[in-house]
Design a protein around this nucleic acid. Sequence first.
DNA 1: CATCTAGGCGAAGTTACCTCA
DNA 2: TGTGAGGTAACTTCGCCTAGA
Length: 327
Amino acid sequence: MMSGKLYGSSADMKVTFQNEKRPRSSDVLESLWIPTPSSSFHGSNSMVNFENVSEGDSLDRPFFQPKQENEDEDYYGGYLHQPGKKRRLTANQVQFLEKKFELENKLEPERKVQLANELGLQPRQVAIWFQNRRARYKNKRLEKDYDSLKASYDKLKVDVDNLLKENGSLKNEVDSLKDVLLSREKGKPDGGNSDSHNAIDASDLVPRSAIPNEDSETVTKGAMVVCKQEDASSAKSDVFDSDSPHCTENHSPLLEPADSSHVFEPADQSDFSQDEDDDLGKTLLPPPQPYLLKLEDCCYDNLPPPNSSNFGYIPLEDQQPFCFWPY
DNA sequence: CATCTAGGCGAAGTTACCTCA
DNA sequence: TGTGAGGTAACTTCGCCTAGA
């Protein structure tokens, strides 16, 4: 902030005219302002009384100050004696100021005086216009920021809702499979024997979404039969929503034993471990952590498109810049 | 060199005027 | 014709900075 700012370089108009302070170099700049009929007109509109401003000849009117329809001596005289009145800048003046504002939104003293001369305004009027213009621009930018953040929030909320729904359906599937397995275990006289798993139809037991890695030691032999590579990959894509392409392909290097502090902990994570002494659940369910990637590993490094459903996260560098002036 | 003071600037907020529906 | 809302020029206050004593 404040880079390139010139401090103490321009005298305020009210100070220049109302108070006789010690002379400064900036006073010379301020004195360069040449009053014109229009500028004296505007000066009369401000709260400052410019007694030393000569009214001059109306032929010296700046090109930005076209003759108004109702412009006459009474018009001028009326405002000259109504210090409380204020006049809007003409469209040409505003257009000219807007162009200058686009080039640089802050005024150097020289520019301020130059613009004032070109527009037939007081330097203070130009300074005030730029101040107000910056304030208006900031408000607009804040509105844009708000809209952008709200859109991101809405998108994120949709993603979260979808994930919660998917999570619920997966839980139901796991529960149903547990029931099937329990019922079959009870039907066997030597229930609990590991060999009995061979008698279970694996297609009934192993949900595609719950197939762990092939080298998982917790997978039973029966499950291994159907645990093919494509199933494993489909399992991953089931875990990560299909519209999250950045997390679906060849992530085996990223499938590290996850630190639970780096993953999205499901709100109902305890549901997976609610029967911790239930080996069946452990048998059927892979440990969930290896399938939850670290976000900073899988999502951010792979440069997801900003409009993907990357939980609504949009990197700052990918957003549209809101400010086009360097500060 | 450190300190103090005057003065200017920008930001933020406010006031007052103007325009228009 | 009166009126309320919105836009905006101008003002006020505050904090920060610079230059000079």
